[in-house]
């Protein structure tokens, strides 16, 4: 299978004359796990949102298989510390809604993901009544149902209990062969056992990365 490639070249982002990202360059391909770390306000989430196509860049290039893209990418899974779910809709309605938008709904796949994330017994409950951790688990199912080839996680371990953190770590490991994954996190302990490259951001600038 051909590997997908992400190239970020001299990426800059300025908001109201404040430079949020300065000259960020790196490349990665399917199978890579990139961990983005840095202090609060270093520009981690901005970098992730630009790569997702949710935010415009000020200058530079973000290429997927040597082509620029926007929201039309269609194969990006984005998990943030907010669950990004509709609280008035049930667990299964949320999952089905997003899957149908991606054009890939199948009841079997939905059942499989809900069982994997431990939400099968709660499938008819409104998301609003679920605990924060359970909402994060559903967010994970939402991300995975679209069969993404670029997985972006922004502080994904926030709100998850130990079991949820173990599940997320297993999923990151399982998807290593199928997708390129970029994880924004402060907590490196959650990533123990994974092989990843690290990008450190300091006031919007990229510091030297390391292979772990």
């Amino acid at each position: 299978m051909m590997k997908d490639q992400l190239i970020v070249n001299r990426l800059c982002k300025q908001i109201q004359n404040k430079a949020i990202l300065k000259d960020i360059s790196f490349s990665a391909s399917t199978g890579d796990i990139i961990v983005v770390s840095g202090h609060n306000g270093a520009g981690k989430t901005t970098l992730l949102r630009i790569i997702a196509g949710l935010m415009p860049k000020s200058s530079g290039e973000v290429l997927w298989n040597r082509q620029s893209y926007g929201l039309d990418h269609g194969q990006i899974g984005y998990m943030s510390h907010k669950p990004m779910l509709y609280e008035a809709l049930s667990v299964v309605d949320n999952l089905e809604f997003f899957a149908r938008l991606y054009g890939c709904w199948s009841a079997d796949k939905g059942r499989e993901l809900l069982k994997l994330t431990g939400l099968w017994l709660h499938r008819y409950e409104p998301v609003g009544v679920l605990s924060r951790g359970m909402q994060q688990r559903l967010a994970l199912a939402r991300v995975l149902i679209g069969a993404p080839r670029l997985l972006l996680y922004d502080e994904p371990f926030t709100g998850l209990d130990l079991e949820g953190q173990r599940l997320l770590r297993e999923i990151i490991q399982e998807y290593q062969s199928a997708a390129l994954q970029i994880i924004v996190t402060h907590e490196h302990s959650f990533l123990e056992g994974l092989v990843y490259r690290e990008i450190k951001l300091m006031n919007g600038k990229m510091e030297e990365g390391a292979l772990r």
Binding site: R49, A52, G53, L54, L71, D72, H73, G74, I76, G77, Y78, S80, M84, L85, F98, L101, Y102, R142, G146
Partner: peptide
């Protein structure tokens, strides 16, 4: 954000 990524 989730909606825009899914709809495109």
């Amino acid at each position: 954000s989730a909606l825009l990524l899914a709809v495109g």
